[in-house]
Design a protein around this nucleic acid. Structure first.
Length: 571
DNA sequence: AACTCTACTTAGAAATTCTTGT
DNA sequence: ACAAGAATTTCTAAGTAGAGTT
């Protein structure tokens, strides 16, 4: 028995080490700690109920966090104010502070606020030389803390600076907004490094929480963040080999799904008519994930914003329309997804899906789960049985990359200029961003820049009118009294009209592009969902320099694809 | 099977730097 | 040379999902 157990353990360990060992040597300097708090100068003061009040450094620091945010919308929210005030209260040590400060509305941070506004103004107005000094300082820091040695290679770290203390700003209606995010002490930090590497030195007079040598994980340091008590990590930059290989693997999994997707689609359609409710729900859920690129929708606690994904959709998030906009069996989705970004969509669905949805919502309240018989865990288990490595999120990657490839094929033609090809690429990229619902707040300068563009267009149109008039005159002159000179003039005027028309077309194209990008964020899909091999192959096939599509960071991240992809690559 | 813990990817906002037109 | 606007980088929150625990 003993031998069997021993063998079992060995086998398990070997199995584990062969596919979960992430590195064999790892050395780094540990995280960089943000600078200590610098107390306010004596002439800058906090006022309570009209009276100046000197605060202890600890409470003063917290007050500066709030004061700095004063002209941000956040500080006008009651939840934010209450969370801030109660966390601030807990840090107050002096009896005077505890006794006196009773309500936020009597707190006056305006002098402190003004002080920081002026400070940042000063920063902006620094001379070139002063800025250069700062830049060098930063690059020295990067040089010292920004890299690690992993398996003998110098790799860039993604976030070597620890997060400074401040007030927590959640996304959307977050119940914890305004809470104090505490300063991280070395005693909070776990270091992970190679067994025989040099152990990073903690700041003088301090010690690490723990030093471990676990090569089954990729992080260099971790701590528990105090708002939710979740772990945070210091990890490598996407340009690293470790991350790059993982990224490549992700797209290879998505490509395997391509081989399997027909049979999976057949299966979920079959599930729509299953005797079992859970199979029907699973079938419809996977259909949504596949068709609409919805996220899985894990359960979440109520200590965060109320957002949902597919499996956590509630009855109130969909409306069924027998007929809508001239189409049958329409489902109207309206819910807040990740980062409280609104998902709003009206989609026609198969009759059987419509019937099922009606069934799922029967006798339920608006706040009940739409899919009450399934969870993301069960759903992923089913998917994994269809194909090893398949989970809900693979569908997003698969559908995003497939869409890019299809759109690129559709939108690119040989006669196009490089500029037109780039526009096509952006269009294809945009189709993906829309599919994945990647939105952003409209840029503050949007209206202005749009107006500017429209003025330019108007001007161009006037120029064209003018040029046409001149052309007409030239024509007439040439007809009345033909001569070499009149002919030349005519040709010149014709060219001018043509040139101006082209410029107008370009401006109008720009206008469309700009308008369409108003609330669409292209970056997220480009960085996380689109197999870089598709882009690289397209660039090669159509002689578009890859730098026109990928900036430096993106080229670093996708080095693996740029190196190995030829123009015949198919996703 | 529910719950907890952990590790990793994905996300938009904000800050910073670069580019462009004047 | 400089200011405005665009592009890029930084920051860190918020997801997904696997594994372990009860």
């Amino acid at each position: 028995v003993f031998i069997c157990v021993l063998k079992g353990v060995r086998l398990w360990e070997e199995g584990k080490s062969s596919d979960t060992q992430k590195w064999s040597s790892l050395e780094h300097k540990g995280p960089y700690f943000p600078p200590e708090y610098e107390p306010l100068p004596d002439n800058i003061c906090f006022y309570y109920d009209g009276q100046p009040m000197k605060l202890s450094p600890a409470t003063e620091e917290i007050v500066t966090f709030y004061a700095k945010m004063l002209d941000h919308e956040y500080t006008s929210k009651e939840v934010f104010q209450n969370n801030f005030f109660s966390d601030w209260k807990e840090v107050r040590t002096s009896i005077q502070e505890r006794k006196l400060i009773k309500t936020l509305s009597k707190c006056d941070f305006s002098q402190i606020h003004k002080y920081f506004v002026e400070k940042s103004e000063e920063r902006k107005n620094m001379t070139k030389e002063e800025k250069q000094v700062l830049k060098e300082e930063a690059s020295r820091l990067m040089e010292e803390y920004g890299f690690c040695l992993l398996d003998g290679h110098r790799e860039k770290i993604g976030n070597f600076k620890l997060e400074p203390p401040g007030l927590f700003r959640g996304r959307g209606e977050h119940p914890k907004m305004g809470k104090l995010k505490k300063r991280i002490q070395p005693e909070d930090v776990t270091i992970n490094c190679g067994q025989d590497s040099k152990i990073p030195a903690p700041p003088a007079g301090h010690r690490w929480k723990r030093v471990q040598h676990d090569n089954t994980v990729t992080w260099l340091a971790s701590w528990l963040e105090n708002i939710h008590g979740r772990p945070k990590y210091i990890m490598l930059n996407p340009s690293s080999k470790l991350k790059g290989e993982k990224d490549w693997q992700k797209y290879e999994t998505a490509r395997r799904l391509k081989m399997k997707v027909d049979s999976i689609r057949k299966q979920y359609r079959r599930d729509w008519t299953s005797r079992e409710m859970k199979s029907r729900q699973r079938g419809v859920a996977i259909y949504f994930i596949d068709k609409l690129a919805l996220r899985a929708g894990n359960e979440k606690d109520d200590e965060s914003a109320d957002t949902v994904g597919c499996c956590s959709l509630r009855v109130e998030h969909i409306t069924l329309h027998r007929r809508l906009d001239g189409q049958e069996h329409m489902v109207e989705f309206d819910f807040l997804g990740k980062d409280s970004i609104r998902y709003y969509n009206k989609v026609p669905v198969e009759k059987q899906v419509f019937k099922n949805l009606k069934l799922f919502i029967k006798h339920k309240d608006p706040e009940d789960d739409l899919f009450d018989r399934i969870t993301t865990v069960k759903l992923n288990k089913t998917l994994n049985e269809c194909m090893p490595g398949l989970t809900a999120k693979v569908f997003r990657t698969f559908n995003a990359s497939t869409t890019l490839q299809d759109q690129l094929n559709k939108l690119t033609t040989e006669g196009m200029t490089v500029e037109e090809k780039i526009l096509s690429y952006n269009r294809a990229n945009r189709a993906v961003a829309i599919l994945c619902n990647h939105q952003r707040a409209a840029p503050k300068t949007f209206e202005k820049s749009m107006q500017l563009l429209q003025e330019k267009i108007q001007k161009k149109k006037e120029q064209i009118e003018e040029a046409k008039k001149e052309l007409k005159e030239a024509k007439k002159a040439h007809k009345d009294a033909p001569s070499d000179k009149s002919k030349k003039l005519l040709e010149k005027k014709e060219k001018a009209v043509q040139r101006l028309s082209e410029q107008l077309k370009k401006l109008q194209l720009q206008e469309t592009d700009h308008e369409e990008n108003k609330v669409i964020a292209l970056g997220t899909s480009k960085l996380n969902y689109l197999d870089a091999c598709i882009t690289v192959a397209w660039c090669k096939k159509h002689q578009v320099p890859v730098e026109k599509i990928y900036n430096k960071t993106q080229r670093d991240k996708f080095a693996w694809a740029i190196d190995m992809t030829d123009e015949n690559f198919q996703f």
